[in-house]
Amino acid sequence: MYEVVVGINIGIFILLALSLNIITGYAGQPSLGHAAFFGIGAYTAAIMTAKLGYNFWLTLPCSAVTAGLIGALLGLVSLRVRNDFLAITTIGINFVTVAIFQYTPYFGASFGLGVERPQLFGQEMGNMHFLVLIVALIVLLCLFCRRIEKSWLGLALGGIRNNEEAAASIGINVNMFKIIAFTIGTALAGLTGAIYAHHMTFIYSSDFAFVTSISILSMIVIGGMGTIRGTVTGAIILGIIPELFRFMSDYRMLLYGGLLVLMMRFQPEGLLGDNSFLWRQFKGLYSRYRLRQGLESGKGGAASDG
């Protein structure tokens, strides 16, 4: 059972990292407050089921919409406040959101909020059910992100990430796409929050604090921002290290902090980012392999690029 719980935790981090990757990796907008939207989703869901008596499955879309709407507001903010200052603003939003959860009695204040495990076919959902649900969502989200990369949306976000002025000069509505990126990314974080709340059955404001935002950001930065493979790898690595080496669990933040510093200093593209050392080696090997295959099958060098 222990492995299942670990799997769920890592799965939740993968979902969060993929959702942040849409905002920070694809659209290039720094967000150091992603956990706030995770929290908004979790609290929305917890209040809906525990206080208002709604069904768990209904909380998934509702949490996504609530977090997405507030995220759209952050998108509006990003139109005015850029780069570092956007980063600071998101820290502030994280801080204020957590303070609201922590000091408002309706949100359980410092006692947190308790919810019950949802029912599935008349039976309480167990850890295994949650794991299946989360894995299914990860697969869907990866497919969704792949689609973004291949679509006009992906190109528009890439334009904004690289140069807003140039993006506007080829007809991209920069403001609209920034808001889209924030809305999608935060809505997905909200959805993840709903699952988290019902899996944990208890949520505290501190679950959604700045350190959580930093953990999520660390995952995409270390894995390779802007790529699905990097984001997922980063979440798995950072999620699993403290579990594999039990003695590490006490050094978790030391490890995250140290890795962030080293990565930024020596490999800002991340482990598997598009221009990272490892990925370039891998691509080099792959194209040499393709070339050799091409030669052997007598097609000459034609297969070398593709």
Binding site: R147, I148, K150, S151, W152, L153, G154, L155, A156, I170, G171, I172, N173, M176, F177, I180
Partner: peptide, 11 residues
């Protein structure tokens, strides 16, 4: 690039 229509279609 100016409306929501077709933003998910293949580029």
């Amino acid at each position: 690039y100016t409306g929501l229509k077709g933003i998910f279609s293949i580029s």
